[in-house]
């Protein structure tokens, strides 16, 4: 077991808990905008279990993306710790699925999917097999040699998802991957994502504005406050898996949970708009 960590190091008194994949403690991030210090995240703590699907919702500008980027190791925190357990050092610890337009326009679909594997020197035959597998899983088999500009927005995002899963990380970080898709495409992509995720044991962090997405995907839903971002509430999602986007809406628990989350989220959105005191 390898522990990777943020800049600040592991607290001496932290006890070993094998279940916890990501331990976020007292995370604060501030940056300078002009002459002012803006606090994006303030003293945020959260434990995420191995294999758990966490969805983070919150008002615009609450620091969701900042949180995700720090967990992914793309940004650095100002204070606090992020400790991630790296179970198998031969595999990458985390991979990010970005908002949109993140597939390389200069690589074909198959070259995009195998990118992570190619960059870390996985032999060609092994790469071939993985690419085939994900072309099939994501319905991209006919487009292996196509370039992204020949694909629709939904197909591009499938390539993005395939690229991340093919890289086979232990943690998947997703930053509003479906924000630019239309309703119908989104519904289908959500089902595809839950299916492909349930076949693996990956820990997932997913950011969204959409409560529907949260309820379909999440084991736990984290609601963040308006800036500076803290945790307002955490909800367990009792809806049974496998979940189909338009079927789970019939479950009375769906409406109840949705309303409960919105009650809290609404207050934070109003605060972020300056309509309620922070």
């Amino acid at each position: 077991m390898v522990m990777t960590e943020g800049r600040a190091g592991i607290e001496a008194d932290q006890k070993y808990e094998p279940d916890i994949k990501i331990r976020i403690t007292g995370l604060t991030k501030s940056f300078r905008v002009g002459a002012q210090d803006v606090v994006a995240l303030q003293d945020l703590s959260l434990n995420i279990k191995a294999g758990e699907f966490i969805v983070i919702v919150g008002p615009s500008g609450c620091g969701k993306t900042t949180l995700l980027r720090i967990v992914a190791g793309l940004d650095r925190q100002s204070h606090g710790h992020v400790v991630r357990q790296h179970a198998d050092p031969k595999k990458p610890l985390s991979t990010m699925i970005f908002q949109e337009h993140a597939v390389f326009p200069w690589f074909s679909v198959e070259k995009n999917i195998e990118y992570g594997l190619r960059m870390r020197g996985v032999p060609k035959r092994e790469r071939r097999a993985t690419v085939e597998q994900f072309l099939g899983k994501m319905g991209l088999r006919d487009y292996a040699k196509a370039y992204p500009h020949q694909l629709s927005g939904g197909m591009k995002q499938r390539v993005s998802i395939a690229r991340a899963f093919a890289n086979d990380p232990e943690i998947l970080c997703m930053d509003e991957p479906f924000a630019a898709l239309d309703e119908q495409n989104k519904a289908i992509m959500l089902e595809e994502l839950t299916r492909i995720w349930s076949e693996t044991l990956k820990t997932a962090l997913f950011i969204t504005h959409s409560l529907d997405e949260a309820l379909i995907l999440a084991d736990r839903i984290v609601v963040m406050t308006s800036r500076p971002g803290r945790i307002a509430a955490i909800f367990d999602n009792p809806l049974p898996r496998p979940r189909k986007s338009y079927e789970i809406r019939r479950d009375p628990a769906y409406g109840k949970l949705s309303a409960e989350i919105w009650d809290i989220l609404r207050v934070e959105v109003l605060k972020s708009r300056g309509e309620l005191p922070a």
């Binding site: 992914a72 190791g73 793309l74 990458p92 985390s94 991979t95 990010m96 970005f98 908002q99 337009h101 993140a102 390389f104 990118y115 992570g116 960059m119 870390r120 890289n167």
Partner: peptide
């Protein structure tokens, strides 16, 4: 070049 491509590279530890 869109910054997101460089982020993908960093994320993949290239």
């Amino acid at each position: 070049i869109d910054k997101v491509y460089l982020d993908v590279g960093r994320d993949m530890k290239v």
